[in-house]
């Protein structure tokens, strides 16, 4: 681009900005609509990302209880424990002897009196298997489960895999819903900006016709409107970021308290600089696209009479 061309672009950009400033109320209302529309998916994304992190955390804390056959002797049990401990997918294996199992059971179940009536200890030995946290996804868990069930010494494996699956399914549903919502809201921003540009073109109709009369090309006529869309998108994106940061600050206290009650160190991640960058990229992109599509149609229809 020539220096004169670049200068012309800068002039047009600053002229478009001045026009926005000249009608502060109308501009601010449009900006608020764009900011809120962009803030919704951005904020939800944040919540979902944090929840995802949390579900990993919970899934990782789940361990499998494997009940050994009654006839297994302690030495064999110890051998199996050592074997499992050596496996890659397993973080830790703990062996509960029959006596330990009994004392834990009587401690937590309240059946200690009834248990006292029994002649011998009915409980088998138990191996508590804790899988590695990064393998604690439904697939990894299922694989480990199948492997444990193959062991001849193991009678029965209990794992609450269902809720891990359910949590993952919920997260996945939420993720898709968010994606869909983001697409719809992105489209909303496009339409809002397109409509604003259409009104702007209508109010500047006479000017556009004169510019075309003196030989202004389509691109020249279109340029100020593209910049208007750009500014709307940029400031809308910035506004969205501020909204999310503000909402995050308001929610941080209660969430930390909630997390403490669940013995979790869950923190609502604040929108960081890269998400600011994304909003400041996406906003203007939507703005330019919206202005582009609206101006193309309406400017073409405006011909000098």
């Amino acid at each position: 681009m020539t220096r004169a061309g670049l200068r012309q672009h800068l002039d047009t950009a600053s002229d478009s900005l001045r026009r926005l400033a000249r009608q502060p109320l109308a501009s601010l209302m449009t900006l608020a609509v764009i900011a809120i529309t962009l803030a919704l998916p951005a904020g939800l994304h944040l919540v979902l990302a944090s929840a995802n992190q949390l579900s990993h955390h919970w899934a990782g804390s789940g361990s499998l209880s494997t009940f050994l056959r009654a006839e297994v002797r302690p030495a064999e049990a110890e051998q199996l424990r050592a074997k499992l401990q050596g496996q890659e997918a397993i973080e830790q294996v703990e062996l509960l002897s029959q006596e330990q199992a009994l004392s834990e059971f009587s401690l937590y179940s309240g059946f200690d009196e009834a248990l006292g009536l029994l002649e011998e200890n009915p409980l088998p030995m138990v191996l508590l298997v804790r899988p590695r946290a990064d393998l604690a996804q439904p697939d990894g868990m299922a694989q480990l489960l199948g492997q444990l069930r193959q062991e001849p010494l193991i009678e029965h494996v209990v794992v609450d895999l269902e809720w891990v699956k359910r949590l993952a399914a919920i997260t996945e549903t939420a993720r898709r819903a968010l994606l869909l919502l983001s697409l719809l809201l992105g489209l909303t921003v496009l339409l809002v900006i397109g409509n604003t540009i259409r009104l702007e073109i209508r109010t500047r109709q006479d000017e556009i016709i004169v510019v075309k009369l003196v030989g202004g090309s389509d691109a020249f006529v279109r340029r100020p409107f593209i910049y208007t869309g750009f500014w709307y998108g940029l400031f809308g994106g910035l506004g969205a970021w501020l909204l999310v940061v503000f909402a995050g600050a308001l929610l941080q206290g209660p969430i930390t308290e909630l997390a403490r009650l669940y013995q979790s160190d869950y923190q609502l991640g604040l929108l960081n600089l890269s998400s600011l960058g994304l909003l400041l990229l996406l906003g203007p992109l939507l703005g330019v696209l919206g202005a582009w599509s609206a101006s193309g149609r309406h400017l073409r229809a405006l011909e000098p009479e």
Binding site: T2, A4, R7, V210, V211, V214, G215
Partner: peptide, 11 residues
């Protein structure tokens, strides 16, 4: 200045 502006004339 308008016709010169649309022609991309230097300022």
């Amino acid at each position: 200045a308008l016709p010169l502006l649309v022609a991309g004339c230097r300022s």
